[in-house]
Write a protein that binds this DNA or RNA. Structure first.
Lengths: 238, 238
DNA sequence: GATGTAAGGTCAACCGTGTTGGCATAAGGG
DNA sequence: CCCTTATGCCAACACGGTTGACCTTACATC
């Protein structure tokens, strides 16, 4: 048994699998992403990934020390991909909005990895680059340092908080998730108006809105708030 | 096998377990919270909970339709406790703020359980009561239904999102958590100003603020935003 | 080219998970 | 006091991650 996984750079012999595929860290991660897309977040299992690769499940342990390690390898890419899929326009508010949505979308494309890493500070290069970008946007927009840090903190934690929340929902089995979503039509929509007047009055609106993520709404509220504060500060100087 | 779980209200015969304990939904949930505190979020298993109760694991299925159902019951308990620790004053904005903080605190008192249930909709009475309360606060403050539902959705998901994020951090070992917090002084504070000018310029502020929860800041931003919207709508009517 | 070494693929097994069908027993209404 | 049935218990299933032993073949060396 391989107690120590051979690092990717030290690999030399690439032996084809019984079914003919030649494995690599990159191929495994890519295949894991495909399996996640096809079978949902709860569908990524060692056995299924092995089948998808045309290899024995235990072979994965030659490349990763466990499923946790594999999740991290996937997660490591997410923040970087968010940054790669984003371009600046010069409008600080629009830029922060699109960056936030890019981060949210990037993580939620792989909820298992997201749930595992959302609340950690990795301190790795691609994450630091995103932090530097955010602070740069705020400071060059005219926010004083203290305000820039406050908005940065709220922005990044808000984004990761919703990643954790929404990923948690996506990690559930398909059955459990649809059950949760149907709650708004099956239970809340049928409550008696006498004891629950406010829910009864808004049942239709709730059923339509609750299955969606509230992230964009809260993000907009935060940015609106920051903009107002920036305008107030600017006005005070004149 | 019990395909239909007997509802708690219809239970009559309470037969002691082989080890002498008399089961109930309440006792099971309380014991589950204890197991979670002692063994962590991943440590709550049917077999372990059965042992802690002095009962066979399969007995749990006489009370809950599955572990999923049990998770809902735990979340329900935490939400109920939040509501119990809260009192209304009549000022909608202050009330929502204190209710949000109460929910946040209630869940974070049991971080393992919070991490497990924050993203679930239980549809049980005490959670429904909280939802009814929030909608009631907003509607009687003068928000039109569509706006009330939008703010309600943002409020509850924001609160639970930060519960999930902050619980994730609390669940880490003491060592891992302090390591994460020190990242802001050990790594970010030492980045070269040439390549990371914005982080370097704000390093001290970051180190001071990042270890705290951003929940109050974001919550205030949301409420401020909602208040402004309410005022604008009211003004338009005149 | 022949040969030795070990990387890396495979197989069978282990243990822990949620969950279920069948059975035993005692609670409590008639 | 008896009979029904709620409710606890037992054994077993399928599936999960993971591991140790084995085998095979790619490559370095001569």
């Amino acid at each position: 048994m391989a107690k120590q996984v051979v690092p990717e750079s030290a690999r030399r012999r690439r032996r084809p699998t019984r079914q003919g595929t030649v494995l690599s860290e990159k191929l495994i991660v890519a295949t894991a992403l495909r399996v996640l897309r096809e079978h949902g977040a709860a569908g990524l299992t060692a056995r299924r990934l092995g089948t998808a690769l045309g290899a024995d499940p235990s072979t994965l342990y030659r490349y990763f020390s466990g499923m946790d390690d594999l999740s991290r390898a996937i997660g490591e890419e997410l923040m970087g991909r968010a940054r790669d899929n984003w371009t600046a326009t010069g409008d600080w508010r629009a830029d922060l909005r699109s960056l936030g949505l890019a981060i949210h979308a990037s993580y939620l494309a792989h909820p298992q990895a997201a749930a595992l890493t959302a609340s950690r500070v990795t301190g790795r290069p691609r994450e630091i680059a995103v932090d530097e970008t955010i602070l740069g946007i705020l400071r060059s927009a005219g926010f004083p340092d203290a305000a820039a840090v406050r908005v940065y903190h709220a922005f990044i934690d808000l984004s990761l908080a919703f990643v954790a929340l929404d990923a948690g929902a996506l990690v559930l089995t398909h059955e459990a998730r649809t059950k949760d979503e149907e709650m708004w039509t099956s239970t809340y929509a049928r409550l008696p108006a006498e004891s629950y007047p406010n829910i009864a009055a808004t049942a239709r609106l709730l059923a339509a809105r609750m299955p969606l993520s509230a992230y964009p709404v809260v993000l907009d509220a935060l940015l609106e708030n920051a903009a107002a504060q920036l305008a107030a500060d600017a006005g005070r100087e004149h």
